[in-house]
Design a protein around this nucleic acid. Structure first.
Lengths: 207, 207, 207, 207
DNA sequence: AGGTAATCGAGACGGTACGTCGTGTCTTCAC
DNA sequence: GTGAAGACACGACGTACCGTCTCGATTACCT
């Protein structure tokens, strides 16, 4: 968990707060409750604000004081699951790419994450700001990690230099992503990362 | 468009119909109304069964007589947008693959389609039967078209024969799919199909 | 049972009927079904036209072809329970009055009858024609029987001649009637008729 | 008017109130709306909870939070029309009885009251608890007033002491009651109270 | 015998209301 | 001012019933 951030601006101004300060326990309790419910197999559709507040033992108004709605809350839940991507530690670019995909498979697209992610996807065109928020804080970092590895590979001659790193990132990431979105109920299999990376590196046309 | 299909079993038995038959005009009116509303920018979230029935000039019970819920209806809407994929017409396998991706870009992932598709994605784990239904009737046909072309390429020596066609299909399709899901608000650019196919064919490693 | 009468005008004109004639079995089946349901303790509120038709094994439209609505049907049900009041058979006017009240207690206000009667009462101001119909065909005959006895008593000197027979009828009948309407769930007790008649005859003021 | 009472237990315990208290304005608004609609000639049958809530500018759930259903609401409406019966003020028992009947004629059975009363009658066997509630809070008080006068008359020798006050009350009240129920559309005529009382006092048999 | 026509059971149809639930706001008291 | 609690107006949910309307099948009269 990395803190809420969405509403509590934590900006430079002291903001002159008065009265009783907000209990950080509430933030924790709410997010944890959502995760627990998801873990228990409660679909995101059955997750009403009403129920979340009730099960968290928290007033509904208190929830709305922190998050603008269910989607904003879900975003913070998703962010609370975020972890720093591993730095480049492999001997070669191929190993770094595999490591990044493995991280995605094991952490970023685990059962809980993709359940929440699906809700966020469903809101893409209805609430663009929401998706932008998620993209800037979570997705961008992961993509940047990919692109850094790819640029390094281009410099070292391990990757063709005439290709767009953005498109390449899509080629590497999206097969795993769409599998997670469309049939996550079965775990992503081991070895998938290696097969994707190697196939992309070698190409599909016979040598 | 292949008709509704969900309820009309199209089985062999004459089914001994009694009472007033269901009006096909209702099926049409409802699906058309949903499409019109989506076209008008009404988000899928604002699409209540109540409103659909009201705007279609149809009783709510009549809608529920045909579809078990909003998701089932959306599925049929999605199916109504389905078109037969183009047969292999290109000179080479590369051209056929590009044609299939182009079809996906222009038809299968147009604004309307991907709006509904996002709803289906959001329901994947909540109602697996729904997704299975959609997969079997729409997705499977498209994937089969891809795999047929790939098998043909393997036979003719244009595609490496040591690869899994299922994984290959994912590699070709998912970059476009995830772009449509995550930022459909900007149209998928021209030339994307060719870039994906060619990059995959050649491989990312320098020759 | 005295026949439906409400809709089948049975007027003088031959009315030139063509096509399949209405099955008298339907009238019977419907009315009997209502009575059976009432007998089974089904409240009049739960008696929907839908359910009546279903349980009678009859099409809904067929029911509506005969009766304009639930109230009209109930009226016919009530009429089917009607019986001819006993003629004056007693030795004196007092005995005739008791006999009439006893008839009312045992027949006219039995459990079934008063259940239906309550429905009709509830419709008094909403559908005055309905009540008028019931009054003219059933109530009037009973009141006339009372008034005839009273007039005979006035002639013979057994009843004060300076009173209005209409008011007198109310005085005799309404105590039993309102008991039946307001707490029919307990049977009207034996001996009630005699107590009412004798108290009214003697008067409440000490002799 | 004695307040709602159905839900407000008025018990001894302070009941530890939490959360926002119920707005008394809602109770008022709803009951007033029902009365207004009845006044406007809207039949009790057309009075749906939906419509009542809509016209009262109140949420449907708010109505159901206070009353279990239409019947319970109607009961409170009926109770809101209740007034304290006049105390014994006449010179003699005969005058007190006339006064009580006059009160019933002018207040208790006015147009509005008997419209609602008919609904209650229709619900008697379906919901006995409802009737019991109404009987205990409204009817009992009125009957008790009658019986008190009658007992006083018995003590003073103005009324025969060998009669059951309960039956006597029925004899006095029910003629007016059943007239109100069966043909309220015409107002109960002036002088009716006196005629009923005097006839009952003198008796029907010639002196 | 064949035609015409109103009937039958069945059930779809557009509506309206039911009673419940969720949304986001508000109002109370306690801290 | 924040906390839990819960009332509030609003609107959607999925079901039931209303009274009307097709369906194919039946059942009489009238050629």
């Amino acid at each position: 968990m990395t803190g809420e951030g969405t509403t509590s601006a934590s900006a430079g101004a002291p903001a002159e707060r008065r009265g009783r300060p907000r209990s950080p326990a509430v933030d924790t309790a709410v997010v944890e409750t959502v995760l627990r419910l998801l873990e228990d197999g409660v679909g995101v559709a059955e997750l009403s604000m009403e129920r979340i507040a009730r099960e968290a033992g928290v007033g509904k108004a208190t929830v709305y004081r922190r998050w603008a709605g269910k989607e904003a809350l879900m975003l913070d839940v998703l962010r609370s699951l975020d972890e720093a991507v591993p730095g480049p530690a492999g001997a070669c670019v191929r190993d770094d790419l595999v490591a990044l995909l493995e991280f995605l498979r094991r952490r970023g697209l685990a059962k809980r994450s993709s359940a929440v992610l699906r809700t966020v996807v469903a809101q893409v065109q209805a609430r663009p700001a929401l998706w932008a928020e998620y993209h800037d804080t979570v997705v961008a970092a992961r993509r940047e990690a990919f692109e850094a590895v790819l640029r390094r590979g281009m410099a070292s001659g391990e990757i063709r230099a005439d290709l767009d790193t953005e498109l390449l990132t899509d080629l590497f990431v999206s097969p795993m992503l769409s599998r997670a979105l469309f049939h996550e109920w079965r775990e992503l299999p081991e070895g998938l990362s290696e097969r994707i990376v190697d196939t992309l590196l070698e190409g599909v046309r016979p040598a």
